Computed example of a mutant assay.
Amino acid sequence: MIEALGFEFFRSALLAGLIASVICGIIGSYITVKHMISVAGGISHAAFGGIGLGYLLGIDPLAGAFWFTLGIAALIWGLVERAKEHIDTLIGAFWAGGMAFGILCLALTHGYTPDLFSYLFGNILLVTPGNLMTISLLGICIVLLFLILYPVLQALAFDPEYAAISNLPTRGLHLLVLVLIAVSVVVLIQVAGIILVIALLTLPAAIVRPFSKTLKGMMIGATAISMLLTAGGIFLSWVFDIPSGSTIIMLGVALYLLTVGGTELFQPVQRDMQEMS
């Protein structure tokens, strides 16, 4: 496996995966604590509508996905904050509607239509220097934003009522988080694909949550787990000549199931020990 590091495309893929892990570890931890996982999934799938619209209009599909996804994020925010619509219903509508709209746009596009799997599952082994630069800039921005806003975001995550009483800009911060999810999804689609982005946003945070006492610790742990899954999946895909995205996802699912199973088995033993003491 070490000889794989001699190839530039492999090193680029590994670096992209590690940077993506930082982005998803930070945002994924926050949306897990805030019970916004369905929001991330809905926005991710809605981005497919923007990709299809881009092809239909003859523009860069990722540019179409960028503006379309930002619009969806703003629409979700407006409906939840102003109309007080139930967010689960909204996400279901945007999840299904975005995918259907994208497929419809692709069906109406004349000439070449892309392979849908390239956007759903991506190919991290085909990352370009331009992709690396974009992901790196996004990673730096997200790290700086969360470092600066961490106390406020922590209050909003664990005690939204206190945050509102304290006159914190809760509505603006909610919009900021939705925008960060949208931008991260679009940037990472070109490298990882929609399905892998959702997996990296949800699985690492879910794995470390039972063992994390603080949001900061959860972010660090989720980032580390995501890096482990990404690096392991890329190496396994190289060794066995299998799709990297699917390998990373299956590793994450396996580790999550082991964690859940281990936690369920450990809790009765822990209670018995406490009773005996």
Rank of each mutant, 00 (worst) to 15 (best):
M1Q: 08
I2P: 08
G6Q: 12
E8K: 12
F10Q: 11
R11V: 13
S12E: 14
L14C: 07
L14G: 05
A16L: 03
A16T: 14
G17I: 02
L18K: 06
A20Y: 02
V22Y: 03
I23R: 00
C24T: 14
C24V: 06
Y30E: 08
T32R: 00
K34Y: 02
M36V: 08
M36A: 13
I37E: 13
S38A: 09
G41Q: 05
G42I: 15
I43F: 00
H45E: 05
H45D: 06
A46P: 03
A47G: 12
G52L: 07
G52M: 07
L53W: 01
G54N: 04
Y55C: 12
Y55V: 12
L57S: 05
I59S: 13
L62R: 04
A63R: 03
A65C: 00
I72D: 13
A74D: 02
L75M: 15
G78N: 14
E81W: 01
A83R: 10
H86Q: 11
I87H: 06
T89N: 09
T89K: 14
L90Q: 15
L90I: 09
I91Y: 00
G92N: 06
W95G: 13
W95Q: 12
W95C: 13
A96H: 07
A100Q: 04
F101L: 15
L104F: 13
C105P: 09
L108M: 10
L108Q: 10
T109A: 06
H110T: 10
P114G: 09
D115H: 11
L116H: 02
L120T: 01
L120Q: 02
G122W: 02
G122R: 04
I124M: 04
L126R: 08
T128C: 01
T134N: 08
T134V: 15
T134H: 05
I135W: 01
L137R: 14
G139N: 11
L144I: 07
L144W: 02
L144N: 05
F146S: 14
L147S: 12
L149K: 14
P151S: 03
A157D: 11
F158I: 12
D159W: 07
E161D: 15
Y162G: 14
R171C: 09
H174Y: 01
L175E: 09
V177S: 05
L178C: 06
L180A: 10
S184K: 01
I194H: 02
I195S: 05
I195N: 01
L203R: 08
A205N: 03
I207H: 00
V208G: 04
K216M: 07
G217K: 06
I225K: 01
S226C: 12
L228V: 15
L229E: 15
T230I: 09
T230V: 15
G232V: 06
G233T: 10
L236V: 08
V239Q: 09
V239I: 08
F240I: 01
D241G: 04
I242M: 05
P243Q: 02
S244T: 14
S244F: 03
T247D: 06
I248N: 11
M250G: 08
G252V: 03
A254L: 14
A254Q: 10
L258E: 09
L258R: 00
Q267W: 09
P268W: 02
P268E: 11
D272K: 00
D272A: 09
D272M: 10
